[in-house]
Design a protein around this nucleic acid. Structure first.
Length: 288
DNA sequence: CACTTGACCTGTCCGC
DNA sequence: TGCGGACAGGTCAAGT
C-alpha cells in the first residue's frame, strides 16, 4: 500500500508529533510484527526519547536517544497513527479515519510518558517493526541493496536510465517496481508515471529509448512530488500519522480508473495484469 | 546472476 | 443472504 509519497507523509507527520517524547511502555500482540526480544525492548526502548524520524525508500526509522532505532515497514496495510490528548469527535473536520485505538488490527503500541500513544496497525500482518542499533541499520540486507532515492536533488536522468541496465530483458513495469533499481516506487506511481511517459508497461527494458527514459524520470519525479503535496494516495487503508486520508487518488490519471476516459485522449482506460500486478493504461497513449 | 512465481495474511467485493 | 474465488498499494524465498 504505502509507497514513497505515503511513507514520506507519515514521516513528516511523526516528525511533528513525536520528537522528544519519551517511551514509557510498549505492547505487542504479534511476535511477527515486532520480533525483538523483550530484553532489548526493556533496555533500549523503554525510557528512551525520540530524537529523529527518517525515511529510506519505503522504510521508516524512528531514532532513539539510546542509539537504537525502530525500523518500520508498513508493507501493504500498515498504519502508524499517533493519538495525543485531543479527541476528535464525530463531525469534527479533523476527524480521523480510524476509530478507537487500539483495535483488532493493532500490532504494536508505544505509550509515551505524557500519556499520548503511537499505534502500529496492520490488517494483513505483512508489516514489521524492528529495534536495531542505529549504526547497524545501513547494514541490513534491504538497505545494502536498495537503489537511490528518486527525489534527491542530485539524482540525474542519466543515472536513472543507467540503473535499468541490469534488468534489460524484463518488462519496464517489473523493473521500475524493483527496489534495487530505484527506491520507493510501487504499483500506483509505476502506472501513473508510465502513463505520463506514454510507455506500455510490458515493453522490455532494452527497447526503451534514451528519450523515453528521460521522460519517465521526469514524470516519476513529478508524480511523486505531487503525491507528497497531496498527502499520498488513500484507496483503502492508507492514512497519515493523524489517521487522515491522502488525496492523490483525486488526481490519478489511470490508476484504478479502468472504464473511465484517458485525460489526454478520452480513450477508455483498461486494466490487465503485468509483472504480476494489476496494471492500468490508456491503450491509445501507451502501445507495445 | 536475472527472471518468474508463489507465499506471507486478512478483508472485501463480485458473480452465481 | 450465502458461498467460493479473485484480488489488494510490498517484499522475499525458491524455483527455473
Amino acid at each position: 500500500m504505502p509507497e514513497l509519497p505515503e511513507v514520506e507523509t507519515v514521516r513528516r507527520g511523526l516528525h511533528e508529533l513525536i520528537i522528544n517524547r519519551t517511551v514509557k511502555k510498549t505492547d505487542h500482540d504479534a511476535p511477527k510484527s515486532f520480533p525483538n526480544a523483550d530484553a532489548d525492548v526493556r533496555e533500549f526502548l523503554i525510557g528512551a526519547a525520540i530524537t529523529d524520524v527518517r525515511r529510506r525508500a519505503k522504510v521508516l526509522m524512528i531514532d532513539l536517544s539510546s542509539a537504537y532505532t525502530l525500523v518500520i515497514h508498513l508493507k501493504m496495510t500498515g498504519q502508524l497513527v499517533y493519538r495525543g490528548d485531543s479527541v476528535f469527535g464525530a463531525g469534527h473536520p479533523n476527524e480521523s479515519l480510524i476509530g478507537e485505538l487500539p483495535d483488532r488490527s493493532t500490532r504494536v503500541t508505544l505509550e509515551f510518558t505524557d500519556g499520548s500513544r503511537l499505534f502500529f496497525n496492520d490488517q494483513r500482518k505483512f508489516g514489521w517493526v524492528k529495534l536495531l542499533p542505529t549504526l547497524e541499520v545501513p547494514n541490513i540486507d534491504f538497505m545494502k541493496k536498495v537503489g537511490p532515492e528518486p527525489l534527491e536533488a542530485d539524482f540525474t536522468a542519466d543515472e536513472f536510465a543507467a540503473r535499468f541496465a541490469r534488468r534489460a530483458k524484463t518488462s519496464i513495469k517489473a523493473a521500475i517496481l524493483d527496489q534495487t533499481v530505484v527506491a520507493g516506487v510501487g504499483n500506483i506511481y509505476a502506472d501513473e508515471s508510465l502513463w505520463g511517459a506514454r510507455i506500455h508497461p510490458k515493453r522490455l527494458v532494452n527497447t526503451i529509448t534514451p528519450d523515453e527514459f528521460k521522460k519517465l524520470y521526469t514524470e516519476l519525479r513529478a508524480v511523486m512530488n505531487l503525491a507528497i503535496e497531496k498527502g499520498g494516495s488513500t484507496d483503502k487503508n492508507y492514512v497519515n500519522a493523524e489517521g487522515k486520508r491522502g488525496s492523490y487518488m483525486d488526481f490519478a490519471r489511470v490508476f484504478r480508473r479502468e472504464g473511465l476516459a484517458c485525460p489526454r485522449c478520452q480513450t477508455e482506460i483498461i486494466k490487465f495484469k503485468a509483472a504480476g500486478r494489476g496494471t492500468h493504461i490508456c491503450p491509445h497513449c501507451q502501445q507495445l
